[in-house]
């Protein structure tokens, strides 16, 4: 009994310590003065985490928009309210699906790759040798990746929403025959720029920070063996998915829950 209690306490301390370490890590890398080549390093990472994730995000967005329209239509048509389809598609995408699904895809596509890349750099002593050359790997390796993720995911989320709305249009208007004017005008009447698009963007900024942070920290903190890398990669995907879904609930409650 005492042993279990002590074990629990030790686990708790470990978790707190890891949180503290990762917080320091985030502060040191994001607040530090960027290195001289910071810009080109950032561009390279933007290309990697942003441009190369575009295809998967856009394709998923298109399909999710189409499915939303199809499902929504079958329900709405029972109430004779199929002209509200645009509103339904746009609101579900902007408030929930785009930030969350884009963040999950991002964690799987870019987050795991970031962890593995940094982990491999650590395992092959590249980070240590960088330190010995007198270059801080937090600034040189970590900071560009963090900033790239932070900028890239909101842009990907916007892309997801746009193509999702278009997918809903394809299915709802072109295929199921919802009147085009009511698709757009219902959407425009109900979607608020600040409350829906703005809040969705705030969500995706938070997710971007959390997912990239987890990915980069797991890579930086892992045990430098092949087993350690595979574990850390898995952890990145699991932790960031959980964090995204949990935070989504909290943020939704704060933004749309009416507790102000």
């Amino acid at each position: 009994m005492m042993g279990q209690l002590r074990g629990l306490g030790r686990r708790g301390c470990d978790v707190l310590e890891a949180l503290g370490r990762s917080g320091l890590f985030l502060g040191q890398s994001m607040l530090g003065v960027p290195s001289r080549e910071g810009w080109s390093l950032w561009v390279r990472q933007m290309h990697f985490v942003g441009v190369l994730s575009l295809a998967i995000v856009l394709v998923s967005g298109l399909f999710i928009g189409m499915v939303l329209a199809l499902q929504g239509y079958t329900i709405l048509v029972d109430f004779g309210a199929e002209q509200a389809l645009g509103q339904m598609v746009a609101l579900s995408l902007l408030r929930e699906l785009s930030p969350v699904v884009a963040a999950l895809l991002f964690a799987g596509r870019a987050g795991s790759a970031l962890t593995a890349e940094i982990g491999l750099m650590k395992a092959t002593e590249q980070l240590t040798s960088m330190e010995m050359i007198g270059v801080d790997p937090l600034r040189r390796v970590v900071a560009p990746r963090l900033w790239a993720g932070f900028v890239a995911l909101p842009l990907l989320t916007v892309g997801f929403s746009v193509i999702g709305v278009y997918g809903g249009y394809l299915v709802g208007v072109e295929w199921l025959g919802v009147f085009e004017g009511s698709y757009w005008s219902n959407m425009q009447a109900s979607v608020g720029f600040v409350e829906d698009i703005g809040n969705g963007l705030v969500k995706s900024l938070v997710f971007a920070l959390v997912v990239t942070w987890i990915a980069v920290f797991q890579g930086y903190d892992l045990v430098p063996t092949s087993e350690g890398i595979s574990r850390a990669t898995t952890r990145t995907v699991v932790y960031s998915s959980l964090a995204v879904l949990g935070l989504d609930f909290v943020l939704t409650a704060l933004m749309f829950g009416g507790f102000s």
């Binding site: 575009l54 902007l94 900028v151 842009l155 916007v158 892309g159 929403s161 959407m187 979607v191 720029f193």
Partner: peptide
């Protein structure tokens, strides 16, 4: 191009979707 597309996408959302 990626960043420009993102900004244009936001503009599209603002004008076309929220009717700003």
């Amino acid at each position: 191009v990626f960043m420009l597309a993102g900004i244009l996408g936001l503009l599209f959302l603002g004008l076309r979707v929220s009717g700003l």
